[in-house]
């Protein structure tokens, strides 16, 4: 589903050039669960941003579902994002002015889904995430674990084929963290491809495969069996 080759990303300031990604190549198959690990500043998040079409690489190629997208125009990338990719962030990134249900509904609105269908889908996914009883609450009224479940619900509500998770348990205690990891695993088992950036060896164990980055390069790839 994803194939990148010799990917490069360079951050430039007036005096220094930093290679955030240096000749990174990797492939992720459909239905895989991949964890990307590495110390702070190794380029994990940069890679995830490029994979999520939020950022552009400076070199190399990036094929998403068989199409080259490394330098696709913003409009096309926004299109791909809303149809195929769901995001889960460490800091949840829920819109504070919207309720749980409205947050989850948002991607469907941007997709142009009709109101009735939206209501159904939102109800279904909230049910699944066991957060239905909180549907009319605002994010700040929820615990961290609950907020992350809402975020996951929002990420999966339009059934994307790929979920990108950036330290999804980073702001959670271990029991809430485990819950979220279980959720991701369930989604993966149902066929969703998941790429997750994490610091946690514990979380990484949920993945099929771990890619380790150091100074913008892949240093190790190994599989969990």
């Amino acid at each position: 589903m994803i194939k990148i080759e010799n990917l490069e990303k360079i951050y430039r300031t007036e005096e220094v050039q930093t290679k955030a990604l240096n000749n990174v190549s990797l492939a992720v198959k459909e239905g895989e669960f991949v964890a990307i690990m590495g110390p702070s500043g190794c380029g994990k998040s940069t890679l995830l941003n490029i994979l999520g079409l939020l950022d552009e690489p400076d070199g190399g190629s990036f094929a998403f579902a068989g199409t080259e997208v490394a330098h696709a125009p913003e409009r096309r990338r926004a299109e791909l994002r809303k149809k195929h990719i769901g995001f889960v962030f460490q800091s949840f990134n829920l819109i504070e002015e919207l309720t749980v249900a409205e947050n989850v509904e948002l991607p469907l609105i941007y997709l142009g889904v009709g109101a009735t269908e939206r209501k159904e889908k939102v109800a279904k996914v909230l049910e699944k995430m066991q957060i239905m009883h909180r549907r009319n609450h605002f994010p700040q009224q929820l615990s961290g674990g609950q907020q992350q479940r809402v975020a996951v619900a929002r990420a999966v509500v339009n059934s994307p084929s790929l979920i990108l998770a950036d330290e999804p348990t980073g702001n959670l205690d271990s029991s809430n963290g485990n819950e979220v990891m279980e959720l991701l695993t369930e989604l993966n088992e149902a066929g969703t491809t998941i790429i997750m950036v994490t610091h946690s060896e514990h979380d990484a164990r949920y993945a099929h495969r771990v890619i380790r980055l150091l100074d913008g390069q892949v240093v190790l790839e190994h599989a969990h069996v």
């Binding site: 999520g52 939020l54 926004a78 995001f87 990134n93």
Partner: peptide
């Protein structure tokens, strides 16, 4: 800004 970021990530276009 954050709201804009989220909306864009989810798929909002600039026009929207």
């Amino acid at each position: 800004a954050k709201e804009v970021g989220i909306r864009k990530t989810i798929g909002a276009s600039r026009q929207q």
